[in-house]
């Protein structure tokens, strides 16, 4: 499989904190890559760099568009925004921060379509209804405000609002992090089936080894801004090499 996204020697400081320390990685088309690691290890920072939401102080992010690889820096802000509006997607941990709660569910799903130029009201509405169904929310709720939705429904809505543009690459930051355990499992199932069906490439940040095992083809383990271990998910989890990864795996109760 061909490479889709590549990080080369990313380093970044916040004040005196070295949040990322010379991180490199590649993501292939249709591949699901999980980033795990303890709190403060730089997972979100790395995700924000990969998705063009933050610009690294040093190093480059390359996106393979067809055959050519171009760094986000060279593409420029406007081109990166265009990518972010349609071909890329971002699912945040807190759907309340990502969605507009004063806009109907349909309007939220249609937002990315409209941002990338859709101008047919009925088409946008039909598409929104289809995506509401795809994330298993009753189509009756199309015109409802999300503030009447449960946490799980809000996360489904955010997923629909992200996938509606048929992206090839989706970034997720702890997409089940804020949810009840019972709800988590269903959302995870939904993500798994959608990701497979749509052939998405995904970078997912999680501190939950179970989530990584369920979803990811490959795994990166971070600690203090560095990648301490990477490889195929099963290999890393069944035979962890780095002491920190061993500790991480050992701390998870067997399923």
């Amino acid at each position: 499989m061909s490479v889709l996204l590549e990080a080369r020697h990313i380093s970044h400081r916040f004040g005196r904190t070295l949040a990322l320390d010379d991180v490199s990685l590649t993501l292939r088309r249709h591949e699901i890559l999980a980033i795990v690691g303890e709190s403060g290890s730089g997972k979100t920072t790395l995700l924000n760099m990969l998705s063009g939401r933050l610009t690294p102080q040093s190093g480059d992010i390359l996106y393979y568009d067809g055959h050519a690889a171009t760094s986000l820096r060279v593409r420029g802000e406007r081109a990166v925004r265009t990518l972010q509006r349609a071909r890329w997607g971002y699912v945040a941990q807190d759907p309340r921060a990502a969605l507009r709660l004063d806009i109907s569910a349909g309007g939220n799903i249609g937002a990315r379509l409209m941002a990338s130029g859709a101008r047919n009201y009925d088409d946008i509405r039909a598409m929104a209804a289809r995506w509401l169904e795809a994330v298993e929310i009753d189509v009756d709720r199309l015109d409802d405000w999300p503030r009447t939705f449960s946490g799980g429904m809000l996360q489904r809505l955010q997923i629909a609002a992200t996938l509606v543009t048929d992206p090839e690459l989706v970034f997720m930051d702890e997409p089940t992090g804020g949810l009840d355990v019972s709800v988590q499992a269903r959302i995870l199932d939904l993500i798994r089936s959608l990701v497979r069906r749509l052939g998405l490439a995904v970078v997912i940040v999680t501190h939950d080894i179970g989530v990584a095992r369920l979803l990811a083809d490959r795994l990166i383990v971070m600690r203090r801004g560095c990648i301490v271990e990477h490889g195929l998910t099963d290999q890393v989890l069944d035979d962890p090499q780095h002491p920190y990864t061993q500790l991480l795996v050992a701390s998870v109760l067997p399923v």
Binding site: R85, R100, G106, G107, G110, R112, A115, S116, I124
Partner: peptide, 10 residues
């Protein structure tokens, strides 16, 4: 200008 269209949609 997507958000402006979202307003019209609403």
């Amino acid at each position: 200008y997507g958000p402006m269209h979202v307003k019209l949609y609403e």
